[in-house]
């Protein structure tokens, strides 16, 4: 079944009150989230390589009267759904996951060099992206989280739509280059990037796993940081958030795509996810039943870093 047929059928048969999906935006290559409630609207539903937002974010802010909702989920949205169900933010029975295989999300900023590019001038063909008739490797247009993605199709789904061809992209270790730099160079990189942050909190608000009622960044009592975007306050915000997302980050990269300044902020979260995967054998949003890595421990956890 195609995505449109599946979504329309769900609404027509009143299986769900809404379908959370993407719709064409007001600018070329941009899509926006939309809650489809009327089967007639479904023809406006799109799914293309420019749907970088994580829709699971919106599951926590559904309008009143929506009990059961279907969500168009690529691999990472699906992982976010699982993680939210695991954290008791959602009830699985109220959620219908419409899985779509994901080709990887193109970073629209990388298309800026082509002036006046129209949507029809860009097509995807296997592992390549064709822009005005010239083919480029798709991987160079994806951001770090997509280049290293392990789960392009949702692991947990109710309906898996057909038609979406997933190019078999090699899984890159996007942090390898950074890790190979000497210590001072790494700090130089992060010092520069963290200083650029204007603390608009777009990264946090785009994150499906950041749902705290009161964020530590805005808390006054206790106060952990000052609202001015200085290096040290940005440091506490981003590292603090990375710690909060340890074992919870679903590696979707929505934060990085949301950042209006293009700061590669997902780097921090991907690094934290790597640590959790490597040492605690845990991946967020993969298994509903696995215990969270920080509510459990092993006596033989790494100890060498402690004096």
């Amino acid at each position: 079944m195609t995505l449109h047929d599946a979504a329309r059928k769900l609404l027509e048969e009143h299986k769900v009150q809404g379908v959370l999906g993407y719709r064409k935006g007001s600018l070329p290559f941009r899509t926006r989230p939309y809650l489809f409630r009327d089967p007639c609207e479904i023809e406006e539903l799109v799914f293309n390589p420019f749907c970088g937002l994580n829709l699971a974010r919106y599951l926590l802010f559904l309008p009143q009267g929506i009990e059961r909702v279907a969500i168009v989920a690529k691999g990472c949205d699906g992982r976010a759904c699982v993680a939210l169900v695991r954290e008791n933010r959602l009830r699985r029975e109220n959620l219908l996951i419409l899985g779509v295989p994901c080709p990887g999300m193109v970073d629209t900023r990388k298309l800026a060099e082509w002036e006046g590019l129209k949507e029809h001038e860009v097509t995807l063909r296997g592992g390549e992206i064709v822009i005005r008739g010239v083919a480029y490797p798709l991987a160079s247009f994806l951001d770090a989280s997509c280049r290293r993605c392990r789960y392009r199709s949702p692991l947990v789904y109710d309906i898996l739509v057909e038609g979406g061809e997933v190019p078999s992209l090699p899984q890159e270790d996007t942090l390898r280059e950074l890790r190979s730099l000497p210590e001072e160079k790494r700090w130089e990189f992060f010092r520069k990037e963290l200083s650029r942050c204007i603390r608009c909190y777009a990264c946090r608000n785009a994150c499906p796993m950041c749902y705290c009622k009161e964020c530590f960044a805005e808390s006054h009592k206790p106060s952990f940081l000052h609202p001015s975007p200085t290096l040290r306050d940005n440091f506490v915000f981003h590292i603090g958030r990375a710690m909060h997302l340890a074992g919870r980050c679903v590696e979707c990269g929505a934060c990085e795509r949301a950042c209006p300044l293009g700061i590669p902020i997902a780097t921090l979260f991907l690094a934290v996810s790597d640590t959790v995967r490597e040492h605690f054998a845990f991946e967020a949003g993969v298994d509903v039943a696995a215990p969270a890595p920080f509510v459990t421990y092993r006596e033989d956890d790494p100890n060498a870093f402690i004096r």
Binding site: D301, P302, F305
Partner: peptide, 19 residues
């Protein structure tokens, strides 16, 4: 033991940052 898990993640993250 719980602390050790948190500290490991922080340690690795600060290691990446060069701190």
């Amino acid at each position: 033991y719980f602390a050790r898990r948190k500290f490991l993640v922080l340690h690795k993250l600060l290691d990446l940052l060069g701190l």
